[in-house]
Design a binder for these strands. Sequence first.
DNA 1: ATTGTTCCGGTAAGCGGTTGCCAGAGAAAC
DNA 2: GTTTCTCTGGCAACCGCTTACCGGAACAAT
Lengths: 338, 338
Amino acid sequence: MATRSIKEVARLARVSVGTVSNVLNRPEIVAPATRARVFDAIRELGFVRNEVARHLRVGRSRTVGLLVLDVANPFFADVAQGAETLADEHDTMVVLCNSGADPSRERRHLDQLEQQRVMGILITPVDAQQPRLAELAARGTPVVLVDSAATGLQCSVAVDDRLGGQIAAAHLIERGHRRITFVGGPPSIKQVADRHAGVAGAVAAAGGVELVDSSMPMLSAAAGRAAGERVAAMPEGERPTAAFCANDLLALGFLQAMAACGLRVPDDMAIVGYDDIDFAAAAAVPLSSVRQPRELLGRTAIELLLEEVAHPERHRHRQVIFQPDLVVRESSALRRRS
Amino acid sequence: MATRSIKEVARLARVSVGTVSNVLNRPEIVAPATRARVFDAIRELGFVRNEVARHLRVGRSRTVGLLVLDVANPFFADVAQGAETLADEHDTMVVLCNSGADPSRERRHLDQLEQQRVMGILITPVDAQQPRLAELAARGTPVVLVDSAATGLQCSVAVDDRLGGQIAAAHLIERGHRRITFVGGPPSIKQVADRHAGVAGAVAAAGGVELVDSSMPMLSAAAGRAAGERVAAMPEGERPTAAFCANDLLALGFLQAMAACGLRVPDDMAIVGYDDIDFAAAAAVPLSSVRQPRELLGRTAIELLLEEVAHPERHRHRQVIFQPDLVVRESSALRRRS
DNA sequence: ATTGTTCCGGTAAGCGGTTGCCAGAGAAAC
DNA sequence: GTTTCTCTGGCAACCGCTTACCGGAACAAT
């Protein structure tokens, strides 16, 4: 019930509060006998250090916020996993927040985290241009962009999404597809825009290939289903023969819609997803997907952040870019007819 | 760079710090002109309230911790979603922490959250008996058990896992299966133990049905795969004809292993999972699964917590139990031969 | 005995806010 | 013009902890 303070510990141990604090923070400078008395008192009272007060005094917290677009997307779970593992080694705590791709929720979370004076923020922004991010950094909360390249004002870790889109499209073109649809999400999301650009580039380079847009306002399986139904409803002559989806959730939904509408994958419709989440391989038709080094993304983001916090003056912002690679599975296997 | 304090705002607005604080917390009591001056100063300096200091004084934080077994499991993402939605309406922030079913990580997170003096903790415990939980409550941090029934020392929201296991097993038995394997996780996890008990009950009630244990130390797709391989390797006469998996991740992995080993689902092996995550319906063979009201679980947990915080004295701990229901899909469809 | 060292632990000033209380300034009432 | 009342905003204590600084005790050296 009562939450004990250092003062009560001091009274019980018959020392001053300063001594208790010393026992907690620099035990070596206090005599063993005193130290033992203090520890006993702590145990007896069930004292728990008030991190809030400590932090107020010390000025730096050991918590970093990780604000992701969608916790329900396993991609982010893996990124979080990577971040947490490394953070752990530097006894830093990661708290996961979810913007759900909603700019206002993103703002609220950023406000919260800044007011909390976290050590830093790792974010997959809904809109990377958002001035809020620059403000944060300017006011002293380091920000690292995750899965989205920064323009120099902050650190970032990302995967070359343009390249990812390009190799996916090139793969489909090489397989003989001449009408491809891009199933994207809101173009304000950098990843989506870049993947689209990569696809567009490959299509333009190939010549004679048509690119149809089937973007949805969300990056969820439900959105993918809706897109799939729309595409399936097209007359056969106009219908694309392949779809590149901006992430695996969309692709999985799209795939379900194909099955529901009686189209065969890959014969009637080839599909390539993005992220290569674990479920991609387990889908009704195992999904070809562009793989990103998810955990590495998280680890590296923490690494950059810790570096910035450790040496704010000599720190230079860095933009780390990883290469994606394509995992080909049955959903884009060679078409049997054609 | 510089993070501004209320003091600087006061100086710039030519008022005292108390007034600035009043503007922030009870704007109606300060004269409009003064108020405007203060707001201008806040804007000009880019002042951000230090929640840490505020909290130290006020003693109550508006953050609740949600500590789950596995962030990568979409089930928890949905629970989190539900919790966050309701928390939002009471401008309370939810931070998600991941124990990864590791007791020591769970402990560390609990320590952190308690030191942080969060308003309360929602937890899916690795071990519900853990004395740590009772201590927390005793020291003033309310705890609500999620997806795990409490014994009266705290509030809890759960789904009747015994019943869930039972209806799943009854379904398989009714479909003619006489040798069923239970693919579980560590039995220390309450949900796993309860689901197993439900299955065992149904099996005992039916008579003439054999229950084989294929439990794994983890509740992941990889563990499910391993279990599946083990089961597939059994000689056909001994091999169970149906599997009930303690969650969908296991079931999905198990299903993949069946495909890899050349066993057909549901003909050679029927499968029922648990949780009915979105991916269950999208699997290679759409998965039968026991559905839980995931978001409702999260919402209700927050509800109970807020109630306890609002009226600590008159609060009575409650154990809310929801009913699961079975969604039958192809993975446990009637066997064509037999 | 005196002085010098060394080692412990107490004292107190904050960290950045919040809030109850109080004084001073106007306005209203007489 | 004085008294009373109402607002407004300042003052200062305090939340729990950290830490620089200082003084006292114990002991060794002179």
